[in-house]
């Protein structure tokens, strides 16, 4: 059982702050490091793995600093995000070399076991340069597992994997977590993180925006006010009906004569039915609003053409978390 501890960690490059005063504890089990691209996830993982010095603060693994401490790698298995390996060797030779670099007592057995774990025993004798992206990812994984480390750090491990490989890797990570290892992986996709991570750390723009179980994070994300753009055959009547309900806090009626509106221009590409405008609704209670909307429409005999959640992109969800 190992615990990674980040204490008031910041890292800046020149005058760009990549990681801003982050304090977090990562214990046994699977932890997802979630955040949009450029949020500082890789910088954070690099500092955890001892490849980057924090500009201020400390990163420790079980009380030992990770920076300039090569003995730390007895405990850490690292899966880098970059794809390059030693292409001229076979998967088997490469994993075996990694086992030998760890000076393991029985490198052959360790390499065999690691390749079995990632289901790469069949293709192990082919040159790495002939592997698909998913296979390379699994070989990288095997090199990180070869010394049976209590801590596993993975930088965007699901990038470029097809759904089947993704599920396989998720199973592997889950199993590692269940064994009591400390597994941390980064991702910019909430669904990925949600499926396997027992706890989630959210990074946005270099800051530690939220942490908790996936239910809490999901809740944070669904409880925020939701924006909808709605198009119907009678926007004005619908607006009146919606604003009468407690689950909505604001309605803006946009008429067709408002050519400056970005939404109108956007909707032109979606395909408007009758050249009319749209409704922008701010829903405070997301769950009951989506339940209510069709009822309202049918009660008032309004035909709904389009209901678009306006800000479901991860960026805006994150932005909300930060602003909170």
């Amino acid at each position: 059982m190992s615990t990674l501890l980040l204490d008031n960690v910041s890292r800046w490059f020149g005058n760009v702050v990549a990681v801003n005063d982050v304090t977090m504890t990562i214990g046994p089990g699977v932890t997802g490091l979630l955040g949009p691209n450029g949020a500082g996830k890789s910088t954070l993982i690099n500092m955890m793995g001892g490849f980057l010095a924090p500009s201020s603060g400390t990163v420790t693994l079980d009380g030992e600093g990770t920076w300039r401490n090569e003995q730390i790698y007895r405990k850490i298995g690292l899966v880098p995000d970059r794809e390059a390996m030693y292409d001229v060797v076979t998967g088997w030779q490469f994993v075996l070399a990694n086992a030998k670099l760890h000076r393991l007592p029985d490198p052959e057995a360790a390499a065999r076991r690691a390749l079995e774990t990632v289901h790469m025993t069949e293709a192990k004798d082919r040159d790495i340069s002939t592997y698909s992206k998913g296979m390379k990812q699994r070989v990288k994984m095997a090199t990180a597992l070869v010394h049976d480390p209590p801590v596993l750090l993975l930088d965007e491990p699901f990038n470029g994997m097809d759904p089947r490989q993704r599920l396989q890797l998720m199973d592997v990570l889950q199993a590692m977590g269940d064994e009591g290892r400390t597994v941390l992986f980064s991702s910019h996709i909430l669904e990925e993180v949600e499926q396997i991570a027992g706890s989630i750390q959210v990074m946005v723009a270099g800051r530690h925006a939220a942490s908790g179980g996936f239910r809490e994070i999901r809740q944070l994300m669904t409880e925020r006010p939701h924006q909808y753009t709605i198009r119907s055959d009678n926007d004005r009547a619908l607006a009146a009906a919606i604003i009468a309900e407690p689950s909505a806090s604001g309605v803006e009626l946009e008429t067709a004569h408002d050519p400056e509106s970005a939404v109108v221009r956007r909707s032109a590409s979606i395909g408007r039915r009758d050249g009319s405008g749209a409704l922008h609704v701010q829903a405070t209670d997301f769950a009951s609003f989506v339940h209510l909307l069709p009822q309202l429409a049918s009660r008032h005999n309004i035909r709904l053409y389009e209901v678009i959640p306006a800000d479901e992109s991860l960026e805006s969800v994150f932005a909300y978390l930060v602003a909170r």
Binding site: Y73, L78, H102
Partner: peptide, 15 residues
Amino acid sequence: DDGSIIYLLSKPLSR
């Protein structure tokens, strides 16, 4: 250049 040196550096080896 290609970052593969990380496989050497992430080992308990003296630099």
